[in-house]
């Protein structure tokens, strides 16, 4: 069955930097994925609920404001509460190297920082989603 991978691309928090998220969304579309783009300034609750309703394989969040240590884990936790523990969660943006181990521990599968080619992200999603 030729099933497109569905990804929710979201910008949590008050951060208005959306260039990276749009670049990543477009690259995913060009790789044959269905990308649900929810726009700026989403609460973790909104992101988790949208991910459930859209039945996505992956939630991809972008933060350049520095609020990642709170917002990323919060989304993971809400997804679990809503029965979405099988959804792959990844993040990207301006995120200091030293924060990455903690985020991974909190359930964010991978973090993609500036300069990462989008092809790397796409390969990662293809290889790590939990449903086929």
């Amino acid at each position: 069955m030729n099933r497109p991978i569905r990804v929710l691309v979201a910008k949590p928090g008050l951060d208005g930097h959306d260039r990276g998220a749009k670049v990543v969304a477009r690259a995913m579309r060009d790789a044959g994925m269905e990308v649900i783009y929810t726009g700026l300034r989403q609460t973790p609750e909104q992101i988790a609920e949208a991910a459930i309703q859209e039945d996505v394989d992956c939630v991809a969040m972008s933060i350049l404001s520095g609020a990642h240590n709170y917002l990323f884990p919060k989304v993971v936790q809400l997804l679990k509460e809503k029965g979405g523990e099988d959804i792959l969660v990844i993040g990207g943006g301006v995120i200091p190297e030293e924060d990455i181990p903690g985020l991974k521990e909190a359930g964010i599968a991978e973090i993609f920082t500036p300069g990462t080619p989008t092809s790397v992200t796409i390969e990662f999603i293809k290889n790590n989603i939990k449903r086929n």
Binding site: P4, R29, A31, G32, E34, T38, G39, Q42, T43, Q46
Partner: peptide, 15 residues
């Protein structure tokens, strides 16, 4: 692939 963007206008209905 596709970019599905209609939800942008419906954010506060999400929850």
């Amino acid at each position: 692939g596709a970019i599905l963007g209609d939800r942008i206008r419906m954010s506060d209905l999400n929850t």
